[in-house]
Design a binder for these strands. Structure first.
Lengths: 200, 200
DNA sequence: AAATAAAACGAACGGTCGTGCTATTTTTTA
DNA sequence: TAAAAAATAGCACGACCGTTCGTTTTATTT
């Protein structure tokens, strides 16, 4: 009677652990994530959880990776159904905005960026790689909008990507401290001005 | 033979401790600040340091306050020598930019904002109060620029303050991850566009 | 059903954490 | 200079940290 899921038990509980770890890291950051708390939360023993990752750092890296995948699945993938150019770019921003609403009580990727920007090590490298990758995707979307003629041919894609990112940082910041509603209004207004100023 | 500094020994060493604590918190955040490490760093016993604050939370609050004062002394105060309006506003931004250069390896206020935005307690309240206060100062400077006729009368001061803040978040973010030089260029370019678009 | 492999547990390790407490040293006051 | 007060050190506490290891349970294979 071999039920034998193709995924295997190991992969399965590992996924469960990562779910809980991701949730905990949203509140306390990757640096605040402890194996003991995580084990209690997931209903396992400390050593049982530990065995799945081999070290705390590997756990943190796995959570970072999980966060990256979730972000892409939420923000980038759905936007690919929209036509290349400005429609897709605006879809990315809209999805990102909703991601911000969902994660106003803490985003793993963003807190990781500020936790590890100053030091070195595997986590720093992972964060830089993740951030550079996402910035690249964003820049690519801008580039396509230029190619499609939706933005001026002289547009500096890296510059616009930076400004888009800065506005989303403003959204997360203000949403976390002062509430999402007002932060969302300000961000929306800023984006309207942004599109207008780059379309000419 | 009473040398008797007016400041008193207590205030004096407390200031020394806060200096070291501030430096440590720049790298590890307020949450990563530990009394043992701090005591070693300042060359005192753990309990000796502890006695100056009564609790770790009070120490963290004191460091937050110290950071706030340093920021104001660096960014706002020197700008007050410039004439009200756009000159002073631009001076604020310029000083803030230089503050960013100096603090690219971690800013206590900014990391505190992302550390405590999600939870509650005295530190959360302190961070919100500090951030709201600074945003208020920024908004006031914008308001004055409107009154002086340097910005259009229809200018939404809170909106412009938000966008200025967002760009500085972008600067800190990119400087920490990708280096200050490119981040500084992008931020400068973004500000040029920003001033132009609000001056009309 | 028996043998084998995988997974989770439980206890313990050396460390560090924040925090009390009492003693000792240093500074200030008289 | 002696007495009073303030500042610091030293030590211990319970709790939690990441990690290791041997045992026990669970799942897979023969």
């Amino acid at each position: 009677m071999t039920t034998s899921l193709v995924i295997g038990k190991r992969t399965n509980t590992r996924e469960t652990i990562l779910d809980h770890a991701y949730a905990l890291a949203r509140r306390d950051g990757l640096e605040g994530l402890s194996i003991g708390t995580l084990a209690t939360d997931v209903g396992m023993s400390k050593s049982g959880v530990f065995a799945h990752f081999g070290s705390r750092e590997d756990l943190q890296l796995a959570v970072l990776d999980a966060g990256s995948h979730r972000f892409m699945a939420w923000v980038l993938l759905p936007a690919l159904k929209h036509p290349r150019g400005l429609p897709r770019l605006r879809a990315i921003v809209a999805n990102w905005f909703e991601w911000g609403r969902e994660h106003q009580s803490g985003c793993v990727l963003l807190s990781a960026a500020s936790e590890y920007d100053g030091r070195d090590g595997a986590l720093h490298d992972g964060v830089v790689q993740q951030q550079a990758g996402w910035r690249g995707e964003l820049q690519k979307a801008v580039d396509q909008a230029v190619q499609e003629g939706h933005l001026g041919a002289h547009t500096d894609a890296a510059q616009l990507a930076f400004e888009i990112y800065a506005l989303m940082l403003g959204l997360h910041h203000d949403a976390g401290l002062f509430g999402f509603d007002e932060a969302g209004r300000r961000t929306t207004a800023a984006f309207e001005r942004l599109w207008r100023s780059w379309q000419l």
